[in-house]
Amino acid sequence: MVSMPDLVVQRLTKSFPTPAEPLVVLDGVDLRVGPGESLAVVGPSGSGKSTLLAILGALDEPTGGSVTLGGVDPFTLGEREQAAFRAESIGFVFQDHYLLPQCTVLENVLVPLLADGQASGEDADRATELLRRVGLGERLTHRPAQLSGGERQRAAIARALVRDPLLLLADEPTGALDSRNADAVADLLLELQSGRAGMLIAVTHSDAFAARMGRPTHLLDGRLVEGQSVERSPS
């Protein structure tokens, strides 16, 4: 029997009520991603990329369809169990780093582990090693305000990976950076992903970044289309 991929999305829909008729953002998205794969989702602003990522990360509920990650449908879980599942299995990198300004870089990376109580010495060692790998080994005690924009985003990547999540979601991770730092962050994400069994899904406006991912896709008319270059349908 062929094993199922670790992320399975079937006929996913998302709509929002309006005074006239529902606004359909996602319209039957189907997606399968296996261990170690990296997938990019390209689309213009307002196409539903961030909405898709929020649903995959169990931050928002779909209107219809299903999502299973590692055999678990997070939308069948209670609120507490869903939060625990999200903390354990999913990592997030956003366009804005969302680092806590009062905490050091090391403390920020340890934040996801505090859901289980106090971080251990082993946790601190793992966070320190991740920060070394992202080039911040000499910045452990710095505050976010003492870092450059590219350094803050690298710290955010380390934080997202500290639990080695099954699914890493990146929402425009290079969107707020200049071209030099954007290239460096893209390089780093792909380098770190190459040694992981988990999955990476990134949404981006950049066709160049998407082309470097294992599977570039485009979100068009509420559906995912595989391929690097897709013509938009007439409006």
Rank of each mutant, 00 (worst) to 15 (best):
R126P: 04
E81M: 10
A176F: 06
H142Q: 10
A156R: 03
L177S: 08
P173S: 06
D123Y: 04
L114Y: 13
F85E: 07
L131S: 12
L169S: 09
L161M: 13
L169C: 11
F85H: 10
L114M: 14
G137S: 10
T174Y: 02
L110I: 12
Q82R: 15
A84K: 09
L136D: 10
G135E: 04
A119D: 02
T174S: 13
R159A: 01
V134Q: 09
S89Q: 15
R163P: 03
G149H: 07
A155D: 12
E151V: 01
E138P: 13
R143L: 15
P74W: 05
P112D: 01
V72W: 00
L77S: 08
L177F: 07
Q95V: 11
Q146I: 12
D178N: 12
L168H: 04
L77V: 09
G137P: 14
L169N: 09
V105S: 05
E172V: 06
R139L: 06
D116M: 02
L136Y: 07
P165I: 08
R132K: 14
H97E: 05
L136C: 12
Q118A: 14
A170D: 10
L167T: 06
L99R: 00
D178P: 13
A170N: 03
P112G: 01
G149Y: 01
L140N: 07
A176D: 15
D73N: 15
L131P: 15
L136P: 14
T141K: 08
G91K: 00
L99F: 04
L167E: 02
L177A: 08
F94N: 11
A119T: 02
R132W: 12
G149Q: 04
E81H: 12
R126L: 13
R143M: 10
P173Y: 03
D171S: 11
A176K: 03
A87L: 13
P173C: 11
E88R: 14
E88I: 08
R143V: 06
T128H: 01
A145P: 00
R143Y: 15
T104L: 03
A160H: 08
A160S: 13
P74I: 04
T174A: 06
A84W: 08
A127G: 11
V105D: 11
V134K: 05
V93L: 11
P112Y: 00
Q102C: 06
L106S: 05
Q95Y: 06
R126D: 10
P101V: 05
F75A: 08
V105W: 05
R139V: 05
A158M: 08
F94R: 09
T104V: 12
A156L: 09
D125I: 03
R139G: 01
L131A: 12
H97P: 00
S179Q: 14
R86F: 11
R86K: 07
D178R: 02
E107P: 03
E79W: 02
L169T: 09
